[in-house]
């Protein structure tokens, strides 16, 4: 899974900041360390035992025990210039908190740019769109209308109804599925990496957007599906 736009920007900024601070730290030293050694020491120092918390779908790493710094202390404390390098090790450890702050910023920035509760975040491009039947009750001779993006603009949100479940099970079992199709290869808004399975209702006028954390249901005025003959023509 690739990074979304906000993550890419935030993490690039974090690395840029680390480069700038690292460079200043280097300038401040009276006895200059060898640069490649200082860089390695930085990365070793960054290694830490951390507590991980999931917040929304984001993993927060809270660095606790500076394992890398301890290792450098144990193995190299008798080397000349040790104190200079130690600074870079600690810099590595504390830079974990910079990333922590960065991670905490991602969620609010993301919600500012993309609305995860909006159909348009999930359905933005329809170049390679395809409809897949997922149930025996589906009509196999159908295609998606070219006007789908236009139609989605007028979509109205309605509540997801758990009664749909009872409609399809029970004694008078109806052998139909309310959502017998899936829209495949729909691209979300640029940079959002928003993931969802998009189900289409049997009349073609309802869309159920199932993201990992929320399900959204929309109704349209017209069907997004059209019937085609077996040889693929309209």
């Amino acid at each position: 899974m690739g990074m979304n736009f906000v993550e890419a920007v935030v993490y690039s900024f974090c690395w840029l900041l680390i480069f700038v601070i690292g460079f200043k730290l280097y300038k401040k030293q009276e006895i200059k360390p060898i640069i490649w050694k200082a860089v390695i020491v930085y990365f070793v120092g960054k290694f830490a035992f951390s507590l991980n918390y999931p917040i929304e779908q984001q993993a927060i790493h809270f660095a606790l025990i500076p394992l890398g710094v301890i290792a450098i202390y144990l193995f190299f404390s008798k080397r000349p210039n040790f104190n200079t390098y130690l600074k870079f090790a600690w810099f590595g450890f504390f830079s974990n908190y910079l990333f922590l702050v960065g991670t905490l910023l991602i969620m609010p920035f993301y919600s500012f740019l993309y609305d995860k509760n909006d159909i348009h975040t999930y359905i933005a491009h329809s170049e390679n769109i395809e409809i897949l039947s997922i149930h025996p009750s589906a009509n196999d001779n159908i295609a998606v209308r070219a006007s789908i993006l236009e139609q989605v603009k007028a979509a109205k949100e309605q509540p997801v109804n758990t009664d749909w479940y009872y409609e399809s099970v029970g004694d008078d079992r109806v052998e139909v599925e309310r959502f017998p199709y899936i829209l495949a290869n729909i691209a979300p808004k640029w940079g959002s990496q928003a993931k969802a399975t998009i189900y289409v209702e049997k009349d073609g006028k309802g869309l159920l957007i199932a993201s990992p954390t929320k399900h959204l249901y929309y109704r349209l005025d017209e069907s997004i599906l059209q019937e085609v003959t077996a040889n693929g023509e309209k």
Partner: peptide, 14 residues
């Protein structure tokens, strides 16, 4: 259903 959040997962049968 969890609070105001409702989820419905359609059946898949091919």
């Amino acid at each position: 259903s969890s609070g105001d959040n409702h989820f419905f997962t359609p059946q898949v049968l091919l």
